[in-house]
Design a protein around this nucleic acid. Structure first.
Ligand SMILES: [Mn+2]
Ligand SMILES: [Mn+2]
Ligand SMILES: [Zn+2]
Ligand SMILES: [Zn+2]
Lengths: 139, 139
DNA sequence: ATAATGATGCAATGCTATTGCAATGTTCAT
DNA sequence: ATGAACATTGCAATAGCATTGCATCATTAT
């Protein structure tokens, strides 16, 4: 198992330290995006700043991406395999539940095509939809 | 002129104080969204917190809306006429220029329809596109 | 073995957002 | 006009997240 995780780090050119194995393991157990605070609470006792830098490293190397959807805090989630340090390829919509406050990746909901005004050139898109998630929805 | 501005405040049920007239006047001169810092610099000497609360009041009353597009700081821009304290009606795309760092409202680019997974219910949408704006674009 | 490089831990800082409270101004009923 | 009630402003303080500096420990290359 640890081998899997280790290989996943190596695939992204990330030195597989003990800390990083633990963080990646934790990330793989999540089904929503997590904040630095979530990570700090979820992990055993560990230094917040190291966790912060671990996430930064993971993001630089294309292992995670971050979402900042006006919730005040940045959240992180694992990328798809094909992402790398040059390009993130999982350009999908994110969803924030106003009820349970969780942030979801919607990997099957690709970012839409937007026609911009003349001479505006798009490079990235950040689309966060707020509402009520499936688990919080009564019907 | 001042009468115009004053009326605009009254239309949104905002008590037209001297400070608020000045802030609205300043906002009307902008063609991009501005941050609290921008406002503070742009205005004559005035208290930052008062400006902050002025923007909050304007937003509550449907006079301005804010944009938080992962630039670290919240930006504000005037709403269209039809917005009120209950609902903001100018649900358009916003654009952040990676070059000049300005945030633009694209009032003619309406938020797209997104089909969400089963049982996800959308309530609001925040769409910020990053790239290069018309003024910064060479061609 | 030693130097170089990378990772970690702790402290400190910067910056934005937000609140508390006192002072000031305004409105309205006596 | 007078004073209570309310709204607005100014200044101080706090909360939180993001970010950096630096010393220490670990790993790797020479
Ligand atoms: Mn995602
Ligand atoms: Mn706008
Ligand atoms: Zn939910
Ligand atoms: Zn530009």
């Amino acid at each position: 198992m640890t081998k899997d995780i280790e290989q996943r780090l190596k695939n992204k050119n990330i030195n597989p330290t003990a800390m990083r194995l633990l963080v990646l393991d934790f990330l793989m157990q999540q089904n929503t995006a997590i904040s630095l605070n979530d990570l700090e609470k979820g992990m055993g006792p560990s230094d917040r700043i190291t966790l912060y830098r671990t996430l930064k490293t993971f993001e630089e190397k294309g292992l995670v991406h971050h979402i900042d959807g006006g919730t005040g805090t940045t959240k992180y989630a694992l990328c798809l395999e094909e992402c790398d340090s040059d390009h993130h390829h999982d350009l999908h919509v994110h969803f924030y539940c106003n009820n349970c406050k969780e942030t979801f990746c919607l990997p099957n909901t690709k970012n839409p095509e937007i026609t911009l005004p003349k001479k505006f050139r798009s490079e990235e898109m950040n689309l966060v939809i707020k509402g009520v998630c499936d688990l919080c929805n009564p019907d």
